[in-house]
């Protein structure tokens, strides 16, 4: 029982990282209907920025985190401006291919700059176990979970209570109507990319600390899983991404601990297939009527 609870907490911690990354996917999809394949690479960039800062400076952890998030947000907006914005009226699949191109580009840029071998991430969070009753929980796990929840609440408040948040919701609901209401659509899209990338970078830094290393293809697998999480919860929906992230994290941890670590990926993808067949719009998604 204690072991099971311990695994559950690990699952929550991994799941919160997936949820942070899934938020970026779902927000971008919600606003421009693009599967942003470069998002996993933004996460990797965030992890590398934190790595550089941690090795070369003695800044406190929280400052490193914030700098990494801001810089990644700038890169995310830049990617949107250069590679996606010129194609806003092109077929959607072309944008998908440029997203894949950007993803390759960032991966190979990291490969050229940092080489292929994994770099050890310095211990940004002091590692010691905290005892909660009979449970031993690592500081990294607790910090990851706490930071994720703080930022998720902040995002929720931002989207629901502020004017730019309202604009974001309006644009994802109906872009043309939003323009008529005087909303600056391009600025709103950039803002969405900035927030999504910052959260992705946060996920990247936490991922790097949890697994103690950074490497150029760091973003590929968690990116793919976070994307699945976003679809599972209902793509385009912010609560869906959070729910999906936690579900994927839990299932992955439990299957790895109790069933088989080789088959855990197949189980995660199998679950995705079942959910899509039964309810294609995801757990929280509403069914849309098909129009002629």
């Amino acid at each position: 029982m204690v072991l099971f609870l311990q695994q559950m907490i690990n699952g929550l911690s991994v799941g919160s990282i997936y949820a942070l990354i899934a938020l970026g996917y779902t927000m971008v999809y919600g606003i421009i209907r693009l599967i942003n394949f470069a998002h996993g690479e933004i996460m990797m960039v965030g992890a590398y920025i934190a790595f550089i800062l941690a090795v070369n400076t003695s800044l406190p952890f929280i400052l490193i985190l914030l700098i990494s998030m801001v810089l990644s947000a700038v890169i995310g907006v830049l990617v949107e401006r250069v590679a996606y914005k010129p194609l806003r009226k092109a077929p959607r699949i072309s944008v998908l291919i440029t997203a894949i191109g950007v993803s390759f580009f960032l991966q190979n840029l990291a490969l050229v700059i940092f080489k292929a071998d994994p770099k050890i991430m310095p211990e940004l969070i002091e590692k010691k176990p905290i005892a909660i009753g009979p449970l031993q929980v690592g500081t990294v796990t607790v910090t990851t979970l706490a930071l994720s929840i703080v930022f998720m609440i902040a995002l929720d408040l931002f989207v629901k209570r502020t004017k730019p948040g309202k604009a974001m919701r309006a644009v994802s609901e109906d872009k043309d109507a939003a323009v008529l209401m005087g909303i600056h659509v391009n600025k709103t899209i950039s803002l969405t990319f900035a927030i999504g990338s910052a959260l992705g970078a946060l996920g990247g830094v936490l991922y790097g600390i949890t697994y103690t290393q950074v490497f150029p293809t760091l973003g590929v697998l968690p990116g793919l899983k976070a994307f699945i999480a976003a679809v599972l919860g209902g793509i385009g929906l912010i609560p869906g991404a959070v729910l999906g992230g936690f579900v994927i994290g839990m299932i992955e941890t439990i299957t790895k601990a109790y069933l088989s670590s080789q088959w855990s990926d197949a189980i995660v993808f199998g679950l995705l297939i079942i959910v899509l067949i039964v309810k294609p719009t995801g757990i929280l998604g509403k069914n849309e009527k098909e129009k002629v």
Partner: peptide
């Protein structure tokens, strides 16, 4: 591969 991906983006744009 950096050049390859760059060219891919340019061709698509």
């Amino acid at each position: 591969m950096l050049l390859y991906s760059f060219m891919l983006i340019v061709m698509m744009l």
